[in-house]
Amino acid sequence: MNVNLRELAQRGSPVELRGRLSAEASATGREDIRIVGGIDASLTARSESDTAIVDGTLSAELEFVCSKCLRTSKEKAEVPVTEMFTLQRGIAERDDDIHFVEEEVVDLSPYLREAFVVQLPMAAVCGEACKGLCPVCGKDRNAEACGCVQERLDPRFAGLKDFFDS
């Protein structure tokens, strides 16, 4: 997916961009999340003074392992994205959010993939109500109650517990 910065500035009106990015290298280093298919992009590109602004939404189907119960789940993720580009080095030096590019035609794919991956959850969960696995017996608490007793004892008071047990 490309955008020509000079043509965009000359046009003066926003340009709609739609497409699909391949996701094979998108979630590198993540064993728990996989992007199924590709990343769908629905974007608008516009020019303001000497800066091109590309914003919109990225969406993809995610397959992940829940960090609480270890079940595999699927979920659609939608991520808002805004990327800014300029051909003038001085503008990019003043603002860290603006990418300096040397070519008039910019391939948006690496910027969009990175913007999507950065917003993936650190620990994916299948749902807010997920109870996870029992730390004592390892049973899935979502499927059945295990009845294990978990005694939470402050280690600072462990000596007192021994004193009262005798």
Score class of each variant (00 low, 15 high):
residue 23 A to D: 06
residue 27 A to Q: 03
residue 27 A to E: 01
residue 27 A to H: 00
residue 28 T to R: 13
residue 29 G to M: 05
residue 30 R to L: 06
residue 30 R to A: 02
residue 32 D to F: 07
residue 35 I to H: 02
residue 38 G to T: 03
residue 39 I to R: 00
residue 39 I to G: 01
residue 39 I to T: 08
residue 40 D to M: 06
residue 40 D to K: 04
residue 41 A to C: 09
residue 42 S to Y: 04
residue 43 L to T: 10
residue 43 L to V: 06
residue 45 A to Q: 08
residue 47 S to C: 10
residue 49 S to P: 01
residue 49 S to M: 04
residue 49 S to R: 09
residue 50 D to F: 12
residue 51 T to K: 07
residue 52 A to S: 06
residue 52 A to C: 04
residue 55 D to N: 06
residue 59 S to K: 08
residue 62 L to C: 01
residue 62 L to H: 00
residue 64 F to P: 02
residue 65 V to L: 14
residue 66 C to N: 04
residue 73 S to R: 06
residue 75 E to F: 11
residue 78 E to W: 04
residue 78 E to T: 12
residue 78 E to A: 15
residue 87 L to A: 08
residue 89 R to T: 08
residue 91 I to H: 08
residue 92 A to L: 13
residue 93 E to H: 06
residue 94 R to K: 15
residue 94 R to F: 13
residue 95 D to N: 15
residue 97 D to Q: 13
residue 97 D to E: 15
residue 99 H to Q: 02
residue 99 H to N: 07
residue 100 F to G: 11
residue 102 E to L: 11
residue 102 E to N: 14
residue 103 E to T: 06
residue 104 E to S: 10
residue 105 V to F: 00
residue 108 L to P: 10
residue 109 S to T: 15
residue 111 Y to L: 05
residue 111 Y to A: 00
residue 111 Y to G: 01
residue 114 E to D: 10
residue 114 E to P: 02
residue 115 A to Y: 05
residue 117 V to P: 01
residue 119 Q to P: 12
residue 119 Q to F: 13
residue 120 L to A: 07
residue 121 P to G: 11
residue 121 P to T: 07
residue 123 A to Q: 09
residue 124 A to R: 08
residue 124 A to N: 09
residue 127 G to W: 04
residue 129 A to M: 14
residue 132 G to N: 04
residue 134 C to K: 10
residue 137 C to T: 03
residue 140 D to P: 06
residue 143 A to I: 15
residue 146 C to N: 04
residue 147 G to W: 08
residue 147 G to P: 10
residue 151 E to T: 15
residue 154 D to M: 03
